[in-house]
């Protein structure tokens, strides 16, 4: 049925069911929801994938999920805020997670957290103003044999001390500034 006088490109857009913003990441989110048949029960899985795709859960994402899964928005918000795995703010470019499990606690993980927080002037659970570095904590990452443990950009580092962690983070951040300087120079 031909009803609209839209150009061919417009039609194509409609067909792919993309987000009006044109953000391609929504296509990935659509695929996830489709995989679960848009079932209400898949809310948690969809939130997981959304966070993986977008990095954090923004309010328009929750609205998008709510409409597509037909779950009341208040429930989506309730679920997303219940689980501490979900974050509502974008994380820094580099992320350091300090394990707060029992074994790590006994071996002084809070001293490490405190030291990092002071050294890089970032409150625990927050990101530096330049958006480069976030310091977060985790309940237990299950590497208790190597306590105290930290995860820097996805890599697990065991048997750390405040000094060794500061050095590790400094290295990462220095590389970042080098890249920046090179970029400016070039």
């Amino acid at each position: 049925m031909k009803t609209s006088s839209g150009s061919p490109t417009n039609k194509k857009q409609v067909k792919s069911e993309g987000h009006p913003s044109g953000d391609d990441r929504f296509k990935a989110l659509d695929r996830t929801m489709k995989r679960f048949n848009f079932e209400k029960d898949s809310l948690l899985e969809v939130l997981h994938d959304t966070q993986e795709i977008f990095g954090f859960l923004s309010d328009d994402l929750l609205i998008y999920i709510s409409t597509h899964l037909r779950v009341p928005l208040s429930q989506v918000y309730g679920v997303a805020t219940f689980y501490h795995f979900f974050t509502f703010e974008p994380l820094g470019k580099h992320n350091c997670i300090i394990c707060r499990g029992t074994a790590c606690h006994v071996k002084g993980s809070d001293v490490i957290t405190q030291a990092l927080s002071e050294e890089f002037a970032v409150p625990i659970g927050k990101t530096t103003e330049d958006g480069l570095f976030s310091l977060t904590t985790a309940r237990c990452i299950g590497s208790c044999g190597l306590a105290p443990v930290a995860v820097l950009n996805g890599a697990v580092h065991g048997k750390q001390t405040p000094q060794s962690m500061i050095t590790l983070v400094k290295d990462v951040l220095e590389q970042e500034t080098e890249v920046l300087e090179q970029g400016e120079a070039g």
């Binding site: 707060r100 499990g101 029992t102 074994a103 606690h105 309940r139 237990c140 299950g142 590497s143 208790c144």
Partner: peptide, 11 residues
């Protein structure tokens, strides 16, 4: 869902 901090048997 091994939430117990200090345990990683199930993992």
């Amino acid at each position: 869902d091994e939430g117990d901090p200090g345990a990683y048997m199930d993992r």
